[in-house]
Write a protein that binds this DNA or RNA. Sequence first.
DNA 1: CTGTATCCTTGAGGATACTG
DNA 2: CAGTATCCTCAAGGATACAG
Lengths: 140, 140
Amino acid sequence: MSSANKKNEIIKEITTSKETTEIEELLCPIRYLLNIFGGKWKLPIICILSGGTALRYSSIKRKLDDITNVMLSQSLKELEASGLVHREQYNEVPPRVEYTLTEKGKSILPALAQVAKWATENMETETACQTKCSECQKTV
Amino acid sequence: MSSANKKNEIIKEITTSKETTEIEELLCPIRYLLNIFGGKWKLPIICILSGGTALRYSSIKRKLDDITNVMLSQSLKELEASGLVHREQYNEVPPRVEYTLTEKGKSILPALAQVAKWATENMETETACQTKCSECQKTV
DNA sequence: CTGTATCCTTGAGGATACTG
DNA sequence: CAGTATCCTCAAGGATACAG
């Protein structure tokens, strides 16, 4: 093939590579997920609450040991606004507030378990990430 | 119940509510996931590449229309380092580089499809989030 | 105990220009 | 085309103190 031909072919490929602009079906839902689960703490909180038992504010905080009050209360509020978490307040002294997953919140758990399963299968062989998991004390 | 009794009961509850400190099995893998998929762009990139066909740098950029060069090249590099994305460079002029998912990258897709399915089912009824999805033009 | 109020730091991400 | 180099902004998140 001549140089000119090759050049033309390349140019043609570049200019015609518009790709079928078909919508990636995954992309939009994923963006939605990033909106409601994005950030550092929301997914961990969901995990903590996945056990099914109602947990107190301080109890969640303890399990997420390095979360600040600001982030915890803010994250819980946003999860509540998304309809994923239920807040039950008891008018006692000292105050007691318990958090649980709503039905909607619970409904994500099977899917979450799927990705967690993938993660578990791939964590062991991963060497690039040096983050220490504060829960299981393994360096993953 | 007397006031004193109630008080004692509350105190007892507080001090003994250590909860079984069992490890939440979900938490650690989720932290791992946040490490390799966290941030604004990595999951969207995975989605874009989920089609199976190799895509050029510029092509990915176009589909993610408002991503900057810095973020795109950086995200791709990190995904490559995690073994999820493969980079194939062709020594042509002008340069051509194509990206695909690796086998590891592909292996997350079924699980990702599960959470995306959940998202799709829940997006419609969601009113709190006002983010406009740039792909499907729906306000989700 | 369950948060709020404030102030502050850091780094993710953006804008622009430029190169091979 | 496929990125780098630079500089910059802004907001997520942290630290500390305090309140109901």
